[in-house]
């Protein structure tokens, strides 16, 4: 199949959001294709989280469209679709991995329950099947089966983050939004999580939009990169090209400011 025959999974056009007079993100447009990982980098306050939340339907944008290639009806603008439709999308084809695992998990429900709940939300009813799938997914994110009945607050930060990923991916979404997925984790845990996410992208053909301020993470994970400053996308391109031959003053500053280990 040549690249031209594949349709984009997500098509973002002129997305803008401001808070009063202040720009959150402005005139952001891009296409994301199946199997592609897009990284969004920028310093705190650059608008990358606002953009991610507008894309995922958590924040209503002031202008613009977020077109998604739905299974049933093809390209649909998720900004103008009804709230129940958008929520259904959030439970099925979309997933959102929060920076803080506790925002994406139910802390008073067992690990197995956290994974099973997503399955039940899309109609799974057979207890044995649900538990079986939960164990399978806990294994894929390297959580031992004998921890299935433990609650997330008994887990380390890295395990919580892996549980959140299992909970999100168990329903086989096609698009995953991630907000600083490796933020606040030990570097050893980060490496394991990065390897896990790369494998999942490759094996499941997932597409992902990943917001981070860690350039090393995007180099290893993202195919393409967008650099944001003050709400605007100032540079975009192949990840390694943007990092190794940055064109915009801000990107040059960002890349040259990374501390060498």
């Amino acid at each position: 199949m040549t690249p031209d025959e594949v349709r984009p999974l997500l098509k973002v056009e002129g997305l803008s959001k401001s808070y009063g007079g202040r720009v959150g993100c402005a005139a952001v447009s891009f296409d994301l294709y199946p199997g592609e990982v897009m990284g969004i980098v920028g310093e705190s306050g650059s608008g990358k989280s606002t953009l991610l939340n507008c894309l995922a339907g958590h924040l209503p944008p002031d202008a613009g469209a977020v077109m998604f290639d739905t299974r049933a009806d093809g390209m649909r603008d998720t900004v103008t679709m009804s709230e129940p439709e958008r929520r259904m999308l959030g439970r099925t084809d979309w997933a959102f991995v929060h920076q803080h695992a506790r925002d994406g998990l139910r802390m008073n429900v067992s690990a197995g329950g956290n994974v099973g709940e997503r399955l039940m939300a899309v109609g799974a009813r057979h207890y044995g099947d649900i538990r079986g799938q939960a164990i399978d997914w806990l294994g894929r994110v390297e959580i031992a089966a004998d921890r299935i009945d433990d609650r997330p607050h008994q887990f380390s930060g890295g395990m919580q983050q892996r549980l959140q990923i299992a909970r999100n991916l168990v329903t086989g979404p096609r698009l995953v939004f991630m907000d600083e997925p490796t933020g606040g984790l030990d570097v050893s845990v980060q490496a394991r999580l990065l390897d896990l996410m790369r494998g999942l992208v490759r094996e499941m053909g997932l597409s992902a939009v990943i917001v981070t301020h860690d350039l090393a993470v995007v180099r290893l994970l993202a195919h393409r990169l967008m650099v944001m400053k003050d709400g605007y996308v100032v540079e975009t391109g192949l990840t390694d090209q943007v990092l190794d031959d940055p064109q915009h003053a801000y990107t040059q500053l960002l890349v040259s400011s990374v501390l060498q280990v």
Binding site: L238, Q241, D245, Q247
Partner: peptide, 9 residues
Amino acid sequence: MRMIYGNYT
């Protein structure tokens, strides 16, 4: 070489 690989513009 990096330009041919698309690593440099």
